[in-house]
């Protein structure tokens, strides 16, 4: 049983990160109808900035908040200057620009901070070897507990933003019917920029936590996390915040259990394969995901 709880807990902790990044994808998708392929690279780049600020002597928590602010401004700027102008032309143009951002941010990070030499990154949470608690025979590391709590808190704040605030209502209105939103006086441009900014800020936080667990910042930091998050968003149904969170946690638990109980067949190497098979399976069987609306364009 202790193995079960270990896999469950580890799964929830990594699932919390997938959920956060999936929320970023969903927030952007609901506002604009685009999948931001550069989401992972945007958070990777912000994480490098957090690391650099910390390296210069800023306390890590302050560096993380600064990174989120920079992320917000960066995300909003990208939406207004790069995405919105080409969005009028076609969805393919948006896709190409996002791919350009993906490639550009990745290579820029490599160029500025060097590709292979890893930069050591401290964790936001206590992370000494004996910083853990034993519950049900499983070791619950403070770091993992911290990630899970941050994940839940951010999710809660997002829900409050969307459901309790005037601006959140405006964001949901834009997602529901952009034309009517303009007619009731919503500045849709500002809402879209804010969606991208918000997604980038949450991404920066997620990236900082990921780098804290591995202890290093590399250009490929968020790559597999982006794939997991896409799987979570797909499973959750792309326009559902709650769906993204539940799906993220589920995928985290499922892949940890799969890797743990079938070390020969799946193991560490094929963990990503589990997530990818979920994407393929969901899209083949139920393209709207478990919690999605009917918005998927069916042929």
């Amino acid at each position: 049983m202790s193995r079960f709880f270990q896999y469950l807990f580890d799964g929830l902790s990594s699932g919390a990160i997938y959920s956060l990044l999936a929320l970023c994808l969903v927030v952007v998708y609901r506002g604009t109808g685009y999948l931001n392929f550069a989401q992972g690279e945007m958070s990777m780049f912000c994480t490098f900035l957090v690391w650099k600020l910390n390296d210069w002597g800023m306390p890590l928590w302050l560096a993380a908040i600064s990174g989120m602010l920079i992320g917000y401004l960066g995300g909003a700027t990208v939406e207004t200057t790069l995405i919105r102008p080409v969005a009028k032309r076609s969805q393919f143009a948006v896709f190409v620009v996002a791919i350009g951002l993906f490639l550009g941010l990745n290579s820029l990070a490599g160029a500025i901070w060097g590709a292979p030499p890893q930069e050591t990154m401290p964790s936001l949470f206590p992370n000494e070897p004996d910083d853990f608690q034993r519950i049900f025979g499983a070791s619950w590391r403070y770091q993992s507990i911290g990630i899970l709590i941050v994940g839940l808190v951010v999710t809660g704040l997002l829900f409050a933003l969307f459901n309790k605030t005037r601006f959140g209502l405006a964001m949901r209105a834009v997602a529901s019917n952009a034309d009517s939103a303009r007619l009731v006086g919503v500045n849709t441009g500002r809402v879209l920029a804010a969606s991208w900014g918000l997604a980038a800020a949450i991404g920066a936080l997620a990236g900082t936590m990921v780098a804290g667990t591995t202890g290093e910042v590399v250009p490929g930091l968020m790559f597999s996390y982006f794939v997991y998050a896409s799987a979570a968003a797909t499973l959750g149904g792309f326009d559902s915040l709650g769906g993204a969170v539940i799906a993220g946690l589920t995928i985290g638990v499922v892949e940890n259990m799969a890797a743990g109980y079938a070390p020969k067949w799946i193991g560490q190497e094929m963990r990503l394969g589990v997530a990818l098979l979920i994407i393929l399976g969901v899209l083949l069987i139920k393209p709207t995901g478990l919690f999605g609306e009917q918005k998927v364009s069916r042929v």
Partner: peptide, 19 residues
């Protein structure tokens, strides 16, 4: 009509007062 189908009736009215 241009209502917001995913929002509740009351939320539709609230967003109407956005300006």
């Amino acid at each position: 009509r241009g209502t917001f189908p995913e929002l509740t009736v009351e939320e539709n009215l609230r967003i109407g007062a956005h300006s």
